[in-house]
Design a protein around this nucleic acid. Sequence first.
DNA 1: AAACTTCTGCACCGATCGGTGCAGAATACG
DNA 2: CGTATTCTGCACCGATCGGTGCAGAAGTTT
Lengths: 199, 199
Amino acid sequence: MSTSQIGRPRAFDAEAALEKAMMVFWAQGYEGASLTDLTEAMGISRKSLYAAYGNKEDLFRKALQRYAEGPGAYIAEALQAPTAREVAMAFLAGAARANTLPGLPAGCLGVQGALAAGETGRVARDTLAEWRAHGEALLRDRFRRAVQVGDLPASADPEKIARYVMTIANGVAVQAAGGATCEDLQQVADAALRNWPPA
Amino acid sequence: MSTSQIGRPRAFDAEAALEKAMMVFWAQGYEGASLTDLTEAMGISRKSLYAAYGNKEDLFRKALQRYAEGPGAYIAEALQAPTAREVAMAFLAGAARANTLPGLPAGCLGVQGALAAGETGRVARDTLAEWRAHGEALLRDRFRRAVQVGDLPASADPEKIARYVMTIANGVAVQAAGGATCEDLQQVADAALRNWPPA
DNA sequence: AAACTTCTGCACCGATCGGTGCAGAATACG
DNA sequence: CGTATTCTGCACCGATCGGTGCAGAAGTTT
């Protein structure tokens, strides 16, 4: 977007409307969220939606980006913890909390947004798979640095540890979608990290 | 079904067609599987489908039942292992294998069949959530018996152990849907059960 | 054979899907 | 002011959604 704002300005808050769209995708999944569901929640017309965000796939990608900066920000925050173990603990504690926040959909947009899909949802599904793989790669890189610094033993396998932690987080997301509480999931996280490193 | 077979017999194998329907739901999810996708895979017409299985929700329920008896049979089998730890190991090893079988969809029908859904998929979503909860309850009961027998210490919490194991299995399902290999997931399972009991 | 029951294939239903054309309203620029 | 540019609301598009009516074919029973 350039700084020019010639022409009629839009009558809605693009960021607030995107947040609403994110919630609809989060709660109903990509294929389960119809244009009608989205526009009603966002309070705008179809035409305004397409002009501001592009088509449904574009909107989904922007909603995911918004998710990563909002409810999913715990991931980036956890990576900054001082030790590998604290990274893992912060990551799983953040997942337990973010997936069970009151007033927000249960579970994780990056998991339930499109885990299996028909032809129309394939792009969304692949986008999320790539997003999860990217998160796992960030964890792996963080654990690699921990090995270099001596925080983790040289025998530790950063890739396997990252996969282990991400698998737990994904399981937490499914459990949350099924109604598990934050305390339930925090206990699972504690148990999963009781012996460290796991691999 | 009664033993009477008056009238024209159906021209297709109901069990084989159900198996095909299961695969479509497994790969594409409830909402992503259209009637056209289903009937083409099953090799029958819409009319035959409705006469033999009921509507789409009924077909989904029957496909899930079929899944539990087929690719998901590892769950019931694992429950019969002699010790609690072997139950958990067999369960997670079975999940790692069943979620990555060549020639079959990756992941678990009970997870990706309908994790988040719109209005039309709500029944399917709740059906799967209940199915997963039922599996967790079976694990819990099995671990309770292990406590009674002395296989698990009296301080162990069967409910928490069951939740822990099921959470790992759910995470394995998500990872498999994203392309993880059986070996990858077996290593995760090994790491998750390295110290026992987990709670 | 006739009568009865069930299954099949085709065409079709209203509803909803994602997406768009168009006219007019609202702003900035000259 | 006039003109250019953008946004809004409405109606509408073809395609697909899940589901069904109907005529006739294919069996069993008597």
